[in-house]
Design a protein around this nucleic acid. Structure first.
Lengths: 132, 132
DNA sequence: AACAGTGTGTAATAATATAACAAATAACAA
DNA sequence: TTGTTATTTGTTATATTATTACACACTGTT
């Protein structure tokens, strides 16, 4: 049996909100939106976010300080993440490409480091914004 | 002739500091260290950092909110960056691997997006920390 | 000189994130 | 059941990271 099979109340509230969102959410925007549900302080949100990231239910878009729900159902942990980010409309999509993930998971250089995790962010213009 | 051939005084002061450092520097640590040189306010540091990042002299380690000098002499702009980060000692190294950069620069998926930039961060344990 | 573009200095403030502590709850063995 | 440990919660305060706004100065044009 895995540990942390069920989410706590606060974690579930935060996850529900992030999952319903079509765009990355910032921590304080989450806070504002869950205040009616009883989460009053930043720390309550950050603690829930930390846990959700740890177990792979959500990912942090580092370049944007924002959070998105994991769209990859097989993703139990956030060990190998890749995103595309439109620099115009800020749309973020999780990239699910097995070739890419295989390539990066197996990547080795001569540094002697053993990599167990990576995060990749691609930037560009999405289809819509390209045609403007 | 390229534009912005020379750095301004503030930019040079910040760049010198970052280049001398053996580890990523945080913005406010930079501020503290350049106050004797006359840069008194955060904004002076952030403006210099923004410009230096833009022209590729330094890179931002997004997951750490810290800055490192570019070690790749041919790197004029920060369009394609990859780093290895030790999760124990926080040592950060810029990865300079032509196969990797070629693979990522040419990466395409079926999203219709045209990528013009990426940032990749690998995490793990460095040689030293692995053997502890 | 007038201008445009860029950089500067300064103060104030916004946005993001964590520390510290006490209390409540869950997990589970003695 | 009790004791023990770990986790989660609630709360206040504070630390850290980053930007807005505005007046002015410098540089290179036209």
């Amino acid at each position: 049996m895995e540990k942390q099979q069920y989410l706590t109340k606060n974690q579930q509230i935060v996850l529900d909100l992030v999952e319903k969102s079509s765009e990355p959410l910032k921590a304080y925007s989450i806070l504002f939106n869950v205040q009616k549900k009883g989460l009053k302080a930043p720390l309550q949100v950050y603690r829930a976010l930390d846990k959700l990231v740890e177990i792979g239910k959500i990912h942090k878009i580092e370049s944007r300080n924002a959070f998105v729900a994991c769209k990859n159902s097989s993703c139990q942990v956030s060990k190998a993440t890749a995103f595309s980010i439109c620099e115009s409309c800020e749309k973020v999509t999780e990239i699910n490409n097995s070739k890419l993930s295989k390539y990066l998971t197996n990547f080795e250089d001569n540094s002697g480091m053993k990599y167990n995790k990576y995060n990749l962010e691609f930037f560009g213009l999405c289809k819509k914004c390209k045609n403007k």
